[in-house]
């Protein structure tokens, strides 16, 4: 039997705040297999970011067990298991795009020649060849976000954690980046966890859609997508697509009423 890449069982997390404890995650059970594209969708405050941060060992669950590649999240991070893409590109303004992508490589101690070779490869991958010498402010928002994806891809993490990476972009740019992200996923075979609050985005991208609801943050539905891996943008007009989108919407509504 194949072991899941990410395995959460009974994960709970309560933040102790000044006024009242916040139950951000309640009894989260989830298995993510290698090569899955998983979207987390739900209204804001339902714990999507918190769950992703637990996987990344940026938060520690207060209960339950969580493994990443069979390791604890902390060990998995030290083993360079994942790359993290934040909502904002967060490129360092004093580094060129090239140097920004080199940042994790420098920290991880890659040799110089290999750094150059990797930078070139990931710039190609996100379609930014020729922009390596530019500073972040010289690039559009969409290009900056692509650069930040390249930065997360530069070292060989087999998991990509993305927290609303396209949330701040307009729809046209977003469509294009979604399409590119799918191609990139197909080419690299990475496992991707993707937080969004857009239903079409979740349905278009995912092999597995995790629907969440707030207070306390929990999973209300997990949908295995029947859509093929090959997905042109037009797939969004097919009955299958609309049916899944409908199920997601229902799941969100139920969570809201409960």
């Amino acid at each position: 039997m194949k072991k899941p890449v990410i395995d959460a069982s009974g994960v709970n997390l309560t933040f102790q705040t000044k006024d009242a404890p916040v139950h951000a995650l309640k009894d989260v059970n989830l298995q993510i297999d290698k090569g899955d594209f998983v979207s987390f969708i739900g209204p804001s405050g339902c714990g999507k970011t918190t769950l992703l941060r637990c996987i990344a060992a940026l938060e520690t669950p207060t209960g339950g067990s969580l493994t990443v590649n069979g390791l604890s999240p902390d060990e998995a991070r030290k083993a360079r298991s994942y790359g993290y893409v934040f909502q904002a590109a967060g490129l360092y303004p004093w580094r060129t795009i090239e140097k920004n992508i080199k940042l994790p490589l420098e920290i991880m101690g890659y040799p110089k020649a290999e750094m150059d070779e990797r930078v070139k490869r990931v710039l190609d991958l996100v379609d930014l060849s020729g922009f390596g010498k530019k500073f972040p402010w010289q690039l559009s928002g969409g290009m900056q976000q692509r650069a930040s994806i390249a930065r997360a891809l530069a070292f060989d993490a087999d998991i990509l954690l993305m927290d609303e990476p396209f949330g701040a972009l307009d729809e046209i740019v977003r469509d294009k980046l979604n399409e590119e992200l799918l191609k990139l996923w197909d080419r690299t075979g990475k496992t991707i966890c993707f937080v969004t609050h857009s239903i079409p985005e979740a349905v278009y991208l995912s092999t597995k859609i995790v629907v969440m609801s707030p207070r306390p943050g929990r999973i209300t539905d997990v949908i295995e997508s029947p859509l093929p891996r090959e997905r042109p943008l037009e797939i969004r007009d097919t009955p299958e697509f609309i049916e899944i989108a409908h199920r997601v919407r229902e799941g969100l509504r139920e969570g809201h009423n409960a």
Partner: peptide, 12 residues
């Protein structure tokens, strides 16, 4: 916080 978190994800 985000810039610092980025460093943490690299175990810097």
């Amino acid at each position: 916080a985000m810039q610092l978190d980025l460093m943490r994800t690299y175990s810097a």
